[in-house]
């Protein structure tokens, strides 16, 4: 996937400006930054849930910028949103089977990545714990045989140990299927542990772009970007 000069926001107000990046196969890209930086907005725009204000998004050579979100999903760009958007009145098995795609994995294969769900197939999704719901949400996305998987705020409301477990499963999925993943995260160190590369967004623009290993080795780079927020030069032409 390639994203060029993306401008994104709500009701004409841009929250993300001039965002450009490329995603290669079997790569985990962490999208980091303080909240309000535009990370979730970026994912929502990539998945078509909010219309882009400018720039273009290309996937497998086709421009998908203005397509309706259901179509983008069917093309293989699948988002797991921060509220998970599960069908809480349906069972785990139903949630997964609704997402089944031709040529995609079977329910058994997907549950294989998250064995905790194995004996909960007939449980109604609304009754699962937070961690299990997150696993189900990712599993549902996997059933759609994604070409690009985007996960928003995986760690929201989950204990770190659970997050680590899910991230390990994610790494396994990426290695086995070659699907690239964009991970939006607030918990930086957890994300960097699972990622290959990271982009740091601050106030809607890319402040840092580096391999994850480098950022792990030099943590003050990140902390400065997060905790001061005044590192950027003033934008020209403000109101």
């Amino acid at each position: 996937m390639a994203c060029t000069d993306l401008r994104a926001g709500y009701s004409g107000n841009a929250v993300v400006r001039e965002l450009s990046f490329e995603l290669d196969a079997a790569e985990v890209l962490a999208l980091l930054g303080p909240n309000g930086a535009g990370k979730t907005t970026t994912l929502l725009t990539l998945s078509g849930l909010i219309p882009a204000l400018g720039g273009s998004i290309r996937h497998r050579g086709i421009t998908i910028t203005r397509l309706p979100p259901a179509k983008i999903s069917r093309r293989g760009v699948v988002l797991v949103p921060d509220d998970r958007a599960l069908f809480t009145t349906l069972t785990v098995a139903d949630n997964l089977s609704l997402a089944r795609r031709r040529g995609g994995p079977s329910i058994a294969e997907v549950i294989g990545y998250f064995p905790q769900l194995e004996d909960k197939r007939q449980r109604v999704a609304g009754l699962l714990s937070g961690g299990e719901q997150q696993m189900l949400a990712i599993g549902r996305a996997l059933m759609q045989r994604p070409d690009v998987l985007m996960i928003d705020e995986l760690s929201l409301g989950l204990a770190p140990i659970l997050v680590q477990r899910i991230l390990a499963a994610l790494r396994q999925i990426v290695d086995e299927t070659g699907t690239p993943v964009i991970l939006v995260e607030q918990h930086v160190r957890l994300a960097l542990g699972a990622a290959d590369r990271a982009l740091v967004l601050v106030h809607g623009q890319v402040a840092l772009s580096a391999p994850a290993a480098e950022l792990l080795a030099e943590p003050d780079l990140l902390e400065r970007a997060y905790l001061s927020g005044a590192d950027l030069p003033a934008r020209p032409g403000t109101r």
Binding site: S47, S73, L90, D94, L98
Partner: peptide, 24 residues
């Protein structure tokens, strides 16, 4: 039926339906 399932899913959350590739 799948039709019923799909209907109940989309009735609960349009966002979830759309992200699962279903067309409301």
């Amino acid at each position: 039926t799948r039709f019923g399932l799909v209907t109940r899913a989309a009735a609960e959350t349009e966002k979830g339906a759309v992200l699962t590739g279903l067309s409301p």
